[in-house]
């Protein structure tokens, strides 16, 4: 009994001594701020900041080679905490969210050809610039869905991408993935968007699609402070204008391509259907 106690006790003592000595002798200093930053960052390793993973971004932050406002999934809260840790002052940026700027489903948009091949928008885009006649419309093959690190995108029953607004963090990965720039970031608190991405003239848009922005300027004339024209495409000036005049503009849009996503609750707010999720995982 005694022998066992002494033996294990001394073994443990020797081990502790060795480890203690080693810890002192071979100590490696890691900036405590880096460890703290790792806890704060979103941890999704989405790459929206331009660094390969949150760890690398934390290291770059401590080294002072990266701006503190690059973690988009974390949003304002993370930015504030990063600023506190690094001791720098930053201006807050409003949280953003992705918007699918297309309503050209098969009922509305015309096809250029029947596509058979790789189920990937970017591959389809390479084949005669995509199977849809409209060069700016959603192809609906789901490249954005497959790459969304937050599971916030899906292809809906109409064959168009849709954003789950509660899950989207505005990381912007889908914006860079989409070969036709259908997706764009918009302030998260805004619900009124122009759901078209085609800058071409009305004659061309009409030949592509029955749901595209014609550039008729009706909305600009109705609510001049809320809408601007970008070539032949109307755009919402986020944060300006009266809801009542905007509602009037929405009502007057001939192709119904300005939508209030709050009222059209079925659009871009549905939870992600399970079937799409399964296709994306190998």
């Amino acid at each position: 009994m005694m022998a066992a106690v002494i033996c294990l006790g001394s073994l443990g003592f020797v081990a502790a001594l060795l480890l203690g000595m080693a810890a002192r002798r071979f100590a490696v200093t890691v900036d405590p701020r880096q460890v703290a930053l790792m806890d704060i960052l979103a941890g999704a390793n989405c790459g929206a900041c331009g660094f390969p993973g949150c760890d690398a971004y934390a290291r770059a932050l401590v080294a002072g080679t990266a701006k503190p406002d690059l973690c988009r999934p974390g949003g304002a809260e993370t930015l504030k905490r990063i600023a506190t840790i690094l001791g720098v002052a930053v201006t807050e940026r409003p949280p953003q969210i992705a918007v699918v700027r297309c309503q050209g489903d098969l009922q509305h948009a015309r096809l250029k050809y029947a596509y058979q091949g790789l189920q990937d928008c970017r591959a389809a885009q390479k084949l005669a610039r995509g199977p849809k006649l409209c060069p700016a419309g959603c192809l609906g093959l789901g490249s954005c869905v497959q790459h969304c690190p937050f599971d916030a995108l899906a292809i809906d029953s109409r064959g168009l991408a849709m954003v789950n607004r509660s899950r989207c963090t505005g990381c912007g990965l889908c914006v860079t993935i989409c070969p036709r720039q259908v997706l764009a970031l918009a302030p998260a608190n805004e619900t009124i968007h122009v759901l078209c991405n085609n800058r071409e003239s009305s004659a061309r848009v009409k030949s592509y699609c029955n749901a595209g922005c014609l550039g008729c300027r009706l909305c600009v004339r109705t609510a001049p402070e809320s809408f601007v024209m970008d070539s032949f495409l109307a755009k919402v000036r986020y944060g300006y204008g009266e809801p009542s005049t905007m509602a009037e503009a929405i009502a007057r849009c001939p192709h119904h391509c300005i939508l209030n996503l709050d009222e059209q609750g079925n659009n871009q707010t549905l939870p992600t259907p399970h079937s799409v999720r399964e296709r994306s995982t190998p």
């Binding site: 091949g117 790789l118 990937d120 970017r122 084949l127």
Partner: peptide, 13 residues
């Protein structure tokens, strides 16, 4: 299998 299409896509990407 649309092999060459996939490879073209990979090249472009």
């Amino acid at each position: 299998i649309p092999l060459v299409q996939s490879i073209r896509y990979a090249k472009g990407a």
